[in-house]
Design a protein around this nucleic acid. Structure first.
Length: 324
DNA sequence: CGTCTGGCCAAGACTTTAAC
DNA sequence: GTTAAAGTCTTGGCCAGACG
């Protein structure tokens, strides 16, 4: 844990990255463990971006990353490893919230977490020294080019300028660590249940978030196309299937209920109207006779509503009497 | 306006990898 | 092994924006 490595005349690296926080969240715990085992040199996502180079979509601007020919050096690997641990440690895993997989932290704060915030000595211009965390920025750019994180540089239309960077981890990050999507889903859903049990209200939280964004233009004015697409994708991959299952359950139970109701009307077959009709057929009662009976009821029992069950019951008894 | 901060970036230093 | 080349980090200039 030697933060300063003093070698010869000039310093190549002041700070060795290390992330020392203990993850409590089960998802973060799993991810941190995987990251510690992971061989970054063999990460196909990182390597593809590394050797091919590419353009990273930052939402409202682009970042061009040059292709490299040699393999990743251990310095960058260390930075990547520790930074990634900090990322998954700080990420939100609330499945129905707007900030699923978001790391609500500045790059500077992240750098500080992994001991990569370097403050150079005071100068005439920077009397209190100058802060620098280029290694973390560059590591994040590598991760973004590999599609393991999504970087979004907000652009405020109102203020006509770029805002601080937003950082999300992507499902590819899980994949690249060899974690099955089903596992992630399971963990996220159990996390959700846990949150609900503890009284976490997603809608309320989203509303608060929205209000805060409205009040503070520096946070966010609107999401870029790519961010919207990303969120929609997360919704599809982690939320919607369960919604559909719920909906299906609701629909099938509704159908069953309906069938039961219909059945209860039909099955007993003791519906007075049906009994009467069957009796009419069975006894071969002429239509005029039925008419007669109906007139009788109308005269003698004016209070009985026509075509109601009691009405038919009365008809039945009268019919039986007339056929005795 | 002056001063401060921090992002971007390139030069230079140094480390590591590739090639021989 | 030795040497060449590439990758990474620090340094520090430039510059835009914040703030008083």
């Amino acid at each position: 844990m030697s933060d300063t490595a003093i070698t010869g005349r000039s310093v190549h690296r002041h700070l060795t990255p290390h992330f020392d926080f203990k993850a409590k969240n089960p998802i973060a715990k799993l991810l941190v463990a995987r990251i510690e085992m992971h061989d970054f040199k063999l990460n196909t996502f990182l390597n593809k971006a590394r050797y091919a180079g590419g353009i990273v979509n930052l939402g409202f601007s682009n970042l061009v990353l040059a292709a490299r020919t040699n393999r990743m050096r251990i310095e960058r690997e260390q930075t990547l490893r520790e930074t990634m641990k900090a990322l998954v440690y700080c990420a939100s895993y609330k499945p129905y919230s707007d900030s699923l997989f978001e790391i609500k932290m500045s790059i500077k704060a992240l750098a500080k977490m992994v001991n990569q915030l370097h403050i150079s000595g005071p100068t005439a211009k920077y009397r209190h020294g100058r802060e620098n965390y280029n290694p973390v920025i560059n590591a994040l750019k590598d991760l973004a080019a590999a599609g393991l994180v999504m970087l979004q540089q907000n652009y405020s239309v109102k203020l006509k300028r770029y805002q601080s960077m937003r950082i999300f981890i992507t499902p590819e990050l899980f994949t690249s660590l060899g974690i099955n999507k089903k596992t992630v889903k399971k963990l996220i859903n159990s996390q959700n249940k846990h949150d609900i049990k503890n009284g976490f209200d997603v809608n309320k939280s989203n509303r608060i978030e929205h209000l805060r964004a409205q009040n503070n233009a520096a946070i966010q004015e609107h999401d870029s196309h790519s961010l919207k697409a990303f969120k929609a994708r997360l919704k599809n991959e982690f939320n919607v299937p369960d919604d559909i299952r719920e909906m299906k359950e609701k629909v099938t139970s509704l159908i069953k209920k309906k069938q039961k109701e219909v059945g209860s009307e039909q099955k007993p077959g003791a519906n007075p109207q049906q009994v009467f009709n069957r009796l009419v057929v069975k006894l071969n009662v002429p239509a005029f006779k039925v008419y007669e009976l109906e007139e009788n009821i109308k005269q003698e029992h004016p209070y009985i509503e026509k075509a109601s069950p009691p009405y038919y019951e009365l008809l039945i008894t009268l019919l039986k009497e007339s056929h005795l």
